[in-house]
Design a protein around this nucleic acid. Structure first.
Lengths: 228, 228
DNA sequence: CGCCGGATTGATCAGTTTCAAGGCATGTGG
DNA sequence: CCACATGCCTTGAAACTGATCAATCCGGCG
């Protein structure tokens, strides 16, 4: 799989983005070609650190990745969860502005930034796709600022559940790769508040559990109404 | 001034960005040319609304602009304040995702998105500048998510003061164009909390007032320490 | 079977919001 | 030129939401 020819193609440009930097990257034998390799990371392993030179762009093959920022005293804000198909590490000038870690065992495809830049300079389609991915990231960040700045705990958790349902629900079941603390650090809440809110939604028959990380949504409409 | 030839040029690519979409746009007689016009808006006038087709990109000439999102019940999150030189309206695919309003009487330079796109397709320098502006916006959003999700009221206000000091302090005096409510809606606080926090910083001799909207910072180091 | 990390739940606490009153500056009209 | 109206800002007191501290509890795994 490594060192194959690669081009960036967005299969359905008009479809709603399924997640952060949502465009899919597919292998293709013709057209602009970019060398790519596969890498694997185990649970909690760092992929890159804030401030490190940003040499590569990544696409999740399977697993899940969190990107975050820290304050001196350890407070953490998770910027985004990256799921299979998502591209991350594209934001960044010379240096990464976030830390990226595997949430669970994860494999990624990596591409050299420089190669990507060169390709984008020559190939308008590639440039457009990169632009679209960047714009998606910005849109997500803007929506998330509204959540962090103005939504209540229930509204945040409802938004999170709907996002995850949309992005990783296969069989009507949401299988969360991340722990309660990660969810809290994504939503600007404590893990206890996340847990309490989920329990409350369970009591209200809006969802049910099969183990803490497997959730079935029973009433998306009510969740959407809560999302404000 | 209207319908002059225009090209996007970043004067000091390596300098720290002074604000959102910080690159400066200058008139130039040669090189890629884009028709631009000037427009004026009075205090509180809407420039564009969320959901409207995004036909233009804007650059503040003088004045100040807020871009924000609303929830159904009127809760508001201000995404950014745009000051002279700043470009806004660049995020957006076909439709604006934010509402833009003049905070005070404001004049802007407008450029057609399509023209800009066409130019960017042909001119690598223009494309790079657009990319840089977009990346700056994303970086700002990421920093702001950390603030909204994890910082205390004092830390938020300290961050705001340092940002405004950097961006619009001429004579050591920060002349704020926006009211306390705007500041609150930017920082995810109420206007009362903003006011109380500023009073507290005044009591601690970190700043002084010449009227509510003219602030002199006396101890940037302490503010920076508070910024966490 | 028992261990261990993660999750839940409870009780209390703190920070911020909310509600309410009053002050100050600006500008307008008498 | 002054009085008053208006909008913004400050300040106070009380209420509330979510955080913190502290036990369990549960489930997956050795």
């Amino acid at each position: 799989m490594s060192h194959s020819n690669l081009a960036i193609v967005v299969p359905f440009p008009n479809r709603k983005a399924p997640g952060p930097f949502a465009s899919q990257i597919f292998f293709r034998s013709s057209g602009a070609a970019i060398a790519a390799s596969e890498f694997s990371y185990s649970r909690d392993q760092e992929i890159y650190g804030e401030g490190e030179p940003a040499e590569y762009v990544y696409q999740v093959i399977h697993g899940a990745v969190r990107t975050y920022k820290l304050l001196n005293d350890g407070r953490r804000q998770i910027d985004a969860f990256h799921l299979p198909g998502d591209v991350f590490g594209l934001d960044s000038g010379d240096a990464h502005r976030l830390t990226a870690e595997a949430i669970i065992d994860t494999s990624v495809r990596i591409m050299k930034r420089r190669t990507l830049e060169t390709t984008a300079n020559a190939d308008v389609a590639t440039a457009c796709n990169l632009w679209r991915m960047m714009a998606d990231g910005l849109r997500r960040a803007q929506d998330h600022m509204l959540l962090l700045g103005r939504k209540s705990a229930v509204e945040r958790v409802a938004a999170f559940l709907l996002e995850m349902d949309r992005r990783l629900s296969k069989t009507g079941m949401v299988a969360l790769p991340m722990c309660r603390r990660d969810i809290g650090d994504y939503l600007g809440l404590t893990l206890e508040t996340v847990s309490r809110t989920l329990s409350q939604l369970h009591d209200d028959d809006i969802l049910s559990f099969s183990g803490a990380r497997h959730i079935v949504l029973h009433n998306r409409r009510r969740l959407e109404a809560m999302n404000a």
